[in-house]
Amino acid sequence: MRTTLELPDPLFARLKAHAASRRLTLKQLLRTYVEQGLDGEPPTQRPPRAAATLPRMDGPLPIPEEQLSNSGLFSLMEP
């Protein structure tokens, strides 16, 4: 079966050089990589990401508290 791959030029150059250094064709090298990927261990799932801790500033707010509503914030963004 034939297929088409779109690879960025730098990646293709690395792949081609790698194949040449091993005296393989691109077809042989890609087939080997695909088989290794399918026969290898499945990737382990990453643990869930923890929520980021945001910086906190103490002191008075630079804008009045009543402007912290959605409509108040949108009014601050309008030119």
Rank of each mutant, 00 (worst) to 15 (best):
R2E: 11
T3C: 10
T3F: 10
T3M: 11
T4S: 14
E6N: 06
E6I: 06
L7Q: 05
L7S: 03
P8N: 12
P8Y: 10
L11N: 04
F12V: 06
F12T: 05
F12D: 09
A13S: 12
R14L: 13
R14M: 12
K16Y: 05
K16S: 13
A17R: 14
H18Q: 15
H18T: 10
A19S: 00
S21D: 14
R23E: 10
L24V: 02
L24H: 02
L24T: 00
T25F: 00
T25V: 03
L26T: 01
L26Y: 00
L29N: 03
L29K: 01
L29I: 04
L30T: 09
T32F: 14
V34K: 07
E35V: 14
E35L: 13
Q36P: 04
Q36R: 15
L38Y: 08
D39E: 15
D39N: 13
D39K: 13
D39H: 15
D39F: 06
P42M: 04
T44I: 06
R46T: 07
P47V: 05
P47W: 01
R49D: 06
R49F: 05
R49G: 03
A50S: 05
A50D: 12
A51Y: 08
A51N: 08
A52G: 09
L54A: 08
D58I: 02
D58C: 01
G59A: 07
G59F: 03
P60K: 06
P60Q: 02
L61K: 01
P62K: 04
P62H: 00
I63Y: 07
I63H: 04
P64R: 12
P64W: 01
E65K: 09
E66D: 12
E66I: 08
L68P: 00
L68H: 04
S69W: 02
N70I: 13
S71G: 11
S71W: 10
L73R: 07
L73G: 03
L73Q: 06
L73P: 00
F74L: 15
L76V: 08
L76R: 10
M77V: 15
E78W: 05
